[in-house]
């Protein structure tokens, strides 16, 4: 079930790792609409797919739905994963976060009103009007 709201998109999928392909396809479709390169699109698919799997693995129940929220702005993309069944202070462990960080994106893992939430932020920059994912470490600044 996909709900369009301006530049925001939401998807709810069962707490099931098999749905990672649905998440990946949604992400690739949205990234294509933004005009991101295939390289960036593949990266987004991988990062968000991995984050989704981490949330599924950390979920305390295999029933219910995980909500994915895609918020698109001209200079950023924020993807949030909400797991209402989660019972951890942090959706993903420190090691998992470290691994995810090495792929790119900025991560915040919190619990708000009993709902585990993982936010992944990406900075968008432009070169000759073409958007690209900006990653400080890969840009040679570190």
């Amino acid at each position: 079930m996909v709900k369009m709201a301006g530049n925001n998109v939401e998807l709810k999928v069962p707490v099931d790792a098999a749905y990672v392909s649905v998440v990946r396809l949604l992400v690739s479709g949205l990234a294509t609409r933004m005009g991101l390169s295939i390289e960036d699109l593949e990266k987004l698919k991988l990062v968000i797919g991995e984050a989704f799997l981490s949330v599924v693995n950390g979920s305390s129940r295999d029933q219910g739905l995980i909500r994915l929220k895609w918020v698109e702005a001209t200079d950023s993309i924020t993807v949030s994963l909400f797991d209402a069944a989660g019972q951890r202070k942090e959706v993903v462990s420190a090691v998992e976060l470290e691994l995810l960080k090495s792929l790119g994106g900025e991560y915040t893992s919190t619990t708000v009103d009993g709902v585990d939430k993982l936010d992944i932020g990406f900075t968008i920059k432009y070169q000759e009007d073409r958007p690209f994912l900006f990653h400080e470490r890969e840009s040679g600044q570190a």
Partner: peptide, 25 residues
């Protein structure tokens, strides 16, 4: 010089964008 996009590949291969995404998956 730029990394190709799905739109670029779709034009190049005469496939639809959906076909390209499916093929990539």
């Amino acid at each position: 010089t730029n990394e190709p996009t799905v739109t670029d590949v779709a034009k190049f291969t005469s496939l639809s964008e959906e076909d390209v995404l499916e093929a990539m998956e």
